[in-house]
Nucleic acid binder design. Structure first.
Ligand code: SF4
Ligand code: SF4
Lengths: 153, 153
DNA sequence: ACTATATAGGACCGATCAAGTCGCATATTC
DNA sequence: GAATATGCGACTTGATCGGTCCTATATAGT
């Protein structure tokens, strides 16, 4: 329950890795997979998905690979999860097609929808850059960087 | 991914229902199940779980049933989910026993752990009472009730 | 041209887990 | 003692996740 898929996990790791190597023009799926021990074929498909949704730019052939399509600051964890796992919903209803059959009688779907939005907001407030540049975290200048999320049930 | 189990859903609904009927000494699992169309046997086991974790008080026999063990304000959604679905973790690692085998090389588990805490905080800030008393939401007095959650990746 | 490298993507499989059912034991009230 | 209700474990079914395999295509270097 409420568990991130490993695919999304891997995707985040890969994007972070790409963000940490801005000098290289492109890194292959195998490069990234080897760096962490992720199954190469699996990661390949994940990166393909991220490419199709526009988060990555790919280049086939030798010395090919993937590179971030945007600045790491402009890519949110939410987008990554969305790309890999599809629409983000914590409840079974709101899942377009075959939802929970007691949707009409349910009285908590509205409040839960708000919780859903809140969590989505948290994810949206996290960028790949945030994951990557951990080292300067404490040495950050006066204005501490922190996302404020308001939750009104 | 990141989806609440229906069991937790049902549990929240049931608790809310109990919170809305404070006059009755106890409501049976069947009562609640019929009120929403939840499979009775399934809900029974959920309520038993909630009883075992101390969120509900049960009474067997005729006119028996369940009642909230505490005030609805003192029961958080987090506790409910925890009781029904077990420990709350969005990642596969930190799952005590058989975790992800690339835990050592993973570089995002720490940031994700912080996200985990943030989401847990959101859930903790929601009480059964919040789910139940929806009607006076807009008519609330000056100080608007809203949970502030700080997220520092 | 040929080959090595790399992306693109479909088919498939096994393990796990959620959801729900069944059966039986126990407690309580009438 | 019958009706009601909790308590609890075993079980079945279906979906989803994690992962593999196989093929097609694109590109760079020799
Ligand atoms: S309808 Fe109510 S019970 Fe069914 S999934 Fe949505 S929230 Fe959960
Ligand atoms: S170790 Fe990294 S990859 Fe494995 S589960 Fe934890 S976070 Fe996800």
């Amino acid at each position: 329950m409420l568990k991130l898929t490993k695919k999304a996990d891997y995707g985040l790791m890969a994007l972070k890795y790409l963000a940490e190597h801005p000098e290289t023009p492109a890194l292959s799926a195998k490069d990234v997979a080897d760096a962490y021990g992720i199954p190469a074929q699996l990661l390949a498909k994940i990166l393909q998905r991220l490419t199709k949704t526009g988060l990555l730019r790919s280049h086939a052939g030798m010395n090919g690979g993937y590179a971030l399509a945007r600045d790491a600051r402009q890519i949110s964890a939410y987008e990554v999860i969305l790309s890999i796992d599809g629409p983000f919903f914590i409840t079974s209803c709101t899942r377009g097609a075959k939802s929970c059959d007691l949707t009409p009688s349910c009285t908590i779907k509205e409040p839960l929808a708000r919780v859903n939005d809140t969590i989505a907001g948290v994810l949206k407030s996290i960028s790949i850059h945030d994951l990557a540049d951990r080292e300067h975290s404490d040495a950050a200048p006066g204005r501490d960087r922190q996302g404020l999320v308001t939750l009104t049930v």
